[in-house]
């Protein structure tokens, strides 16, 4: 997979820098994918503490 993941917030990124954390500390190897669409009503978003809809990895290496 070519997409990378921010090691800090686990966001799946298109670019080389996390727009939320501002870091370029990215993981190339990651597993699991969670897509949060509705932060207001998603129980999964609440469990993960996600408050901005986005794609996240479950684990990074």
């Amino acid at each position: 997979m070519s997409e990378k993941v921010c090691r800090h917030c686990l966001r799946v990124l298109d670019g080389q820098t996390c727009p939320v954390c501002g870091t370029s500390d990215l993981a190339e190897e990651w597993s699991g994918l969670v897509i949060i669409l509705d932060t207001e009503r998603s129980e999964i978003a609440k469990k993960l503490g996600v408050d901005i809809p986005d794609r996240f990895a479950l684990k990074v290496r």
């Binding site: 597993s31 699991g32 994918l33 969670v34 897509i35 949060i36 669409l37 509705d38 009503r41 998603s42 129980e43 999964i44 978003a45 794609r55 479950l58």
Partner: peptide, 27 residues
């Protein structure tokens, strides 16, 4: 094809404004 299904579903949900709140594809 789990991730590809998850990605496509999220795209459709956004486009059609469906009440899909989250999608999970654990390895």
């Amino acid at each position: 094809q789990e991730r590809s299904v998850a990605m496509t579903l999220s795209r459709i949900a956004k486009k059609e404004k469906l009440d899909i709140r989250a999608i999970l594809a654990p390895d």
